[in-house]
């Protein structure tokens, strides 16, 4: 399944450029690129809706992919990812607390605590904290486990426990709050504004650069902790760096766009399988490029061009991504190279 490296980069890059053009040209309104230069209303929609949405698709596709790649490397587990390990659930818990926490504590009689949630704690901060706490817990538990399967089961259990807490909060939330949380859970890039991107893009870019700078350490992590330590790797420091980067990336995207499943697992795999490498100086930029491409096309479909309606992004990523990964799985039969 090896594709020559330069062909891979050129093909994916070309597909991405086409995707960007299509994403800008087609939306839920009939406005096209040319009209953006002619009409004031069209220009507003381009500046304020389509371009921020496209940028968010590019950034979040790359962010979730890198987050998945880092987790897979750290846990040396091919199906680790923000969604599978419950990190997205942690971010979800943070968002649930910021949306539904007030009603829950009010119902339980903790009125003073409920007023705390009426302060404008942003969903973003809550989501990042939730993701980091969950990832930290999983990392501590992973050091006590011998095999990857147990880790995934623990991730699943933590995810279920978090879901249970969220269910309790939903039970006590008002109709409006529950609806807001359900909508958030479906995933959408349409709610992101230019002012949000001023916050999101620099943080994500810093994380991308940091993850690229970690590439040698990430390669050593694949040897296993003992061997990596034997060749001089500071395991503890590397782990914390990975947790911080993966947690921030997963948390920030989940806060603004909702939990986007599948991308975090699928994209790093596709990169490994198609490029036949485990070297992170290739995998990091490759995951960024393929992640961007994948999410740009998924979001293009979720916009349902020509119709005014919209589809949940989460559903689209799974429906498109699952067959692709299954196909590659069946053809390659290998996860790590």
């Amino acid at each position: 399944m090896k594709i020559k490296s330069h062909i891979w980069w050129c093909s994916v890059f070309s597909i991405l450029i086409i995707g960007i053009v299509l994403h800008l040209q087609f939306g839920s309104s009939s406005i096209g690129i040319i009209q953006a230069f002619q009409e004031e209303q069209a220009a507003f929609i381009f500046r304020q809706v389509r371009i921020p949405r496209l940028l968010m698709a590019l950034v979040s596709g790359a962010a979730i992919s890198i987050s998945g790649l880092l987790m897979q490397t750290m846990f040396r587990n091919p199906i680790a990812g923000p969604y599978v390990l419950g990190v997205s659930s942690g971010a979800g818990l943070g968002v649930a607390l910021s949306i539904l926490g007030g009603s829950l504590f009010s119902a339980l009689g903790f009125v003073q605590l409920s007023t705390f949630f009426s302060f404008p704690i942003t969903e973003t901060i809550a989501a990042i904290l939730g993701a980091l706490v969950l990832l930290f817990c999983i990392t501590i538990l992973s050091s006590r486990l011998r095999d990857g399967a147990s880790l995934l089961i623990i991730g699943l259990m933590i995810g279920m426990a978090v879901s249970a807490l969220v269910s309790i909060m939903q039970l006590y939330g008002s109709e409006g709050e529950v609806r807001r949380f359900v909508l958030w859970g479906m995933g959408s890039l349409a709610g992101v504004t230019n002012s949000d991107l001023v916050f999101i893009i620099p943080i994500c870019l810093a994380c991308f650069i940091a993850s690229f700078l970690l590439h040698k350490r990430l390669d050593l992590m694949l040897l296993g902790e003992e061997d990596a330590e034997a060749v001089g790797l500071n395991i503890k420091q590397t782990r914390y760096s990975i947790i911080a980067i993966a947690g921030i990336l997963a948390g920030i995207v989940t806060a603004y766009a909702g939990p986007i499943g599948f991308v975090g697992i699928a994209v790093p795999h596709l990169c490994r399988v198609t490029l036949k490498t485990s070297s992170h100086n290739i995998l990091v930029p490759a995951s960024i490029l393929l992640g961007c491409t994948f999410l740009v096309y998924c979001d293009l479909l979720s916009k349902l061009p020509g119709l005014e309606l919209t589809l949940p992004l989460n559903a689209v990523t799974a429906l498109i991504g699952a067959p692709i990964v299954i196909r590659y799985m069946l053809r390659s039969q290998k996860w790590f190279v």
Partner: peptide, 24 residues
């Protein structure tokens, strides 16, 4: 109710004069 994309609503509601029931 229909679940509409923000872009479509901004475009369609360009001519709206009044806005009622904006959530909470």
């Amino acid at each position: 109710s229909m679940s509409l994309d923000l872009e479509a609503v901004i475009n369609t509601c360009d001519t709206a004069q009044f806005w009622i029931n904006p959530g909470t």
